[in-house]
Simulated scan of single mutants.
Amino acid sequence: MNSFWSKVNETTHTPVNAVWLVVAFCSCLDLIGIGSTLTIVAIFNITAPALDISYIAVIIAHRVYEHRVQFIPGPYTMGRWSKPVNAIAVTWVCFISVVLFFPTIKPVTASNMNYAICVAAFIGLFSMAWWYAGARK
C-alpha cells in the first residue's frame, strides 16, 4: 500500500497519487466548514501554534542530540550565541502558543470559544496512538 502513495510519476517526477490524496483530504476538510463554521475555525486556529511548535521541535531535538550526532554548521552560524537564542526562541514559542489558544472575544461563550486546544489535543492523541501502533518500530 505504501508503494502506491509514494510512487513517483515518470512524466512529472512527483508523487501524483500522494498529491491527489492530499487534495481529497483537504476537500473533505473544507466540507466541514459548510456544516459548522465553529469547527472549521477551530481547525484553522491550530495552524499557527502547530507551525511554531514544529519549529521548536527541531531546536529541541538538535540540543538533545548535539553530543550524539555530528552537526556540521553551515556558513551562517551564531556560534556561542546559538544556545541562548535557542532558549529564548523556545520560551517565546511556548508562551505565544498558549496565548494563541485563548478566546479572542470576551465574554467567552460556547459560540465564540477558541476550540483549537481541542483540535490540538486530538492531533496529539492521534499522533501518539499512530506512533504506538506502528511508527515506533
Rank of each mutant, 00 (worst) to 15 (best):
D52S: 09
T11Q: 14
W20I: 11
V119K: 01
G79W: 13
I46P: 00
N17P: 01
V16M: 05
G74R: 15
G134E: 14
A42C: 06
C118H: 01
N112Q: 10
I72S: 14
N112K: 07
I43R: 00
G124A: 12
T11D: 09
W5S: 03
S82T: 13
Q70S: 10
A48I: 03
A110T: 06
F126M: 08
W81H: 11
Y65C: 09
W81Q: 13
I40K: 06
V22L: 13
V108E: 04
T109D: 05
W130L: 12
T91G: 09
I43Q: 00
L31I: 07
T77M: 10
I123R: 01
F71L: 11
V41F: 05
A24F: 15
S127L: 07
F126I: 05
G35R: 11
V119A: 02
P103D: 07
W92N: 03
T12G: 04
W131P: 05
N17S: 07
E66K: 15
A61R: 09
A116D: 01
I88A: 10
G134C: 12
S54H: 03
H67G: 08
W130H: 06
N86E: 12
T12L: 11
A61I: 03
M113C: 03
P73W: 15
F44L: 04
N2K: 15
Y65E: 12
F71K: 09
A120D: 01
I60A: 03
I40S: 06
A42R: 01
H62I: 08
S127W: 10
W92Q: 02
A87T: 08
W81P: 02
V93W: 00
P107Y: 14
W5M: 14
T37D: 05
V22T: 13
V98F: 11
V23E: 12
F95C: 03
T11W: 15
N9C: 13
V58Y: 09
N45G: 02
V16C: 03
W81R: 07
N86V: 07
D30H: 12
Y55N: 05
K137E: 11
I88G: 04
P15Y: 04
